[in-house]
Design a protein around this nucleic acid. Structure first.
Lengths: 378, 378
DNA sequence: GCACTTTGGCAACAGCGTTGTTTTAGTGGG
DNA sequence: CCCACTAAAACAACGCTGTTGCCAAAGTGC
């Protein structure tokens, strides 16, 4: 079998450019003020000709995704017509299935939450009860959407890892062994009547973290909760790895002769760090986390780290930032000022559904600037 | 500034498909026997229609890159016409500037070495002498190529890191501080009259390592020489990171309270491992390397590791493999049976030049299957 | 009020892969 | 030997993409 990169035709070309335009429109709709963006600016930003942009915008407007939104100031000639995304044109559902809490959000086309439901929850109650609870919450959240069957794109579900994103199957959720091997994506899709994408909570969060400043092309989201995990964004897209298991940040050995971890290895960062937190020794926990983060940053040349999870208070975040400044080479990495909030994961889950629309895509086209690896496999 | 993913037109579409076809032809030309590949098979492998493939092949043949090479057996109808790359149609030069040795190879369009020159070398001799030596070797290696100015695509240069791949500028080469900040790519390009791409030796090796079996989409090349570095191949392309500094595998802290390393951090894998090697304690070195590799594999979900570098003998490779089997979760990672040879880096350097021809590219098109990260930066 | 600038639509166009059809080159039964 | 059949590959027409050239619309500024 070959690399599997498919050949492309005119439809792929059209979709590619439409996605670029849609993403620029989304940013212009969401960013401060949401003034919109003109065709001219879309043209310069994409490198397409103004005429091509006009055609693309006309197509998108025909689908109801884009609308005119006033005009800009003149710069000596005809003033620019501003365009915006029609936020109500599509919606996506985001689910965060935590161990004891279920968060369900409805997100509009621009990627912002419209409705939110947070309810207590027992992941140990078994598939039947869990599916029922989720379906009920989703029904509540989507009941106000007119023409839901037409505008609801699907649902994204975030769950504790490890899990198989491609197959939509859960793995060994610590403390809840009954879910191992359960095909949650298919089960939810059947129950909700929607396409469902499943991913790790850390990956969902990485899609939505409020890093301060423009979001870098590569960064790491570090989650400190009942475990220690990471969501890796590399070159502008989530990196999941061959078995969609990437991000096992907590199970790096920091003390080769340390205590045995539940994962089988020794001196795992997760075990050491969580033990320190349990002891109330946040300084030690922060330092351990900083060492792990510095290792990751050095390996991946990452210059930004975002923290999140229940254990991460602003104070702890500051401790980690200070420790990281000591552990890493000066000026190479910094911790984002904001940390991920409670809703981040659920909103990120919805982004699993929206992302293809605004899609930087998996293969092809512009990778010419990277060195591709010769693919000698058959 | 936006993500910078450019819009695509018909030429980009054409180049994308041509690159896919060229890559399949390259594999068929190089793989055992080099029998070639038919238009039909190209069509099924790319997903393009046979007619599209015929047109693409005709274009490529017009440029002299492809030629017919016999016919296959009939399967009941007209037998398939086999096609092969014309290996002499283009060439690339690969340079490995090591501390005490210069390797120069000439590589044909199929990516295989045609000529090789290994000469003693003193990286400390300064730019003038080094450029002169390189230019002379390149002249020797390319003198037999007819119409060199037409068929020589360029030169790739591999040097010890860290360095700035994008700018083509060297960094602090341990032991040779005089090169810090030297714009080697530009200097070489001027001297050779060829486009020059500069990259770390580890990255070059990763482009060309003889991993046993089909090359996986994601793997790590670990280099053990005068330092400890890694070349990361993620999702089928080299991962270099925002500042093209990724792969600092040796500077992960394995002992938070260990000895201070030259890099400023404590208990670095590189310092510990090289010290063990210097002591002749290969078992300890192998175990440390295995711990680092297991950390990397867990974080990136990588299932294959390739070893190379002067310190890596087959025996040491086996020691690391055994240690890794103990350190990592069972069945998750293995060490390739072969380790990278002496020519690997120089050939990989030439691949820096060839890769765009067969190019999976940086952005666009098929990334829709990955979750793109919302790009809110302006 | 007129010259000038900029936006953006209209129309013709070139180039891409696709579709429908025909030609070419084999196989195999009678 | 002939003829029906099959598969590969070229030929021709086509639809759709972004591009180019041109012009109308809508402002600014002297």
């Amino acid at each position: 079998m070959n690399s599997g990169i498919p050949g492309a035709g005119l439809p792929a070309l059209r979709d590619h450019n439409a996605a670029l335009v849609l993403d620029l429109l989304r940013v212009a709709t969401v960013a401060d003020g949401g003034a919109g963006i003109s065709r001219q600016e879309l043209a310069t930003r994409t490198g397409l000709t103004p005429q091509a942009v006009s055609k693309i915008v006309a197509r998108l407007a025909g689908q109801g995704l884009v609308a005119e939104a006033g005009r800009g100031a003149s710069t000596g000639g005809k003033p620019r017509t501003l365009l915006r995304l029609v936020r109500q044109a599509r919606y996506a559902v985001g689910l965060h299935l935590d161990r004891d809490e279920l968060t369900v959000v409805l997100v509009d086309l621009a990627g912002e939450a419209v409705t939110e439901r947070v309810t207590p929850f027992d992941l140990g109650a078994g598939p039947g009860a869990v599916l029922e609870a989720v379906a009920e919450r989703v029904r509540e959240v989507t009941s106000d959407v007119p023409g839901a069957e037409r505008v609801l794109l699907g649902a994204g579900a975030a769950a504790p890892g490890p899990l198989d994103h491609a197959a939509g199957v859960l793995g060994r959720v610590t403390g809840f062994p009954g879910w191992d091997g359960f095909a949650l994506a298919d089960a939810l899709a059947g129950r909700l009547g929607l396409p469902v994408t499943l991913d790790k909570d850390t990956n969902a969060a990485a899609l939505r973290v409020p890093a301060d400043g423009p979001r870098p092309a590569s960064f790491a989201y570090l989650h400190v909760g009942s475990g220690l995990g990471a969501g890796l964004v590399l070159d502008g897209a989530l990196y999941r790895g061959p078995r969609t298991g990437a991000g096992e940040f907590g199970h790096q050995t920091l003390e080769p002769d340390g205590p045995r971890c539940a994962c089988g290895r020794r001196g795992c960062l997760e075990a050491l760090c969580l033990a320190a937190l349990a002891d109330g020794d946040t300084a030690r926990a922060a330092r351990l986390l900083a060492v792990g983060a510095a290792n990751l940053a050095a390996l991946l040349d990452i210059d930004r780290v975002v923290l999140g999870g229940r254990a991460v208070t602003p104070a702890f975040r500051d401790e980690v930032a200070a420790a990281l400044a000591r552990e890493a080479a000066p000026g190479t990495v910094r911790v984002a000022r904001e940390c991920a909030g409670a809703r981040t994961i659920a909103e990120g889950a919805a982004w699993l559904v929206l992302a293809p629309l605004f899609g930087r895509r998996r293969f092809g086209f512009w990778r010419r600037f990277l060195a591709a690896v010769p693919d000698d496999g058959f």
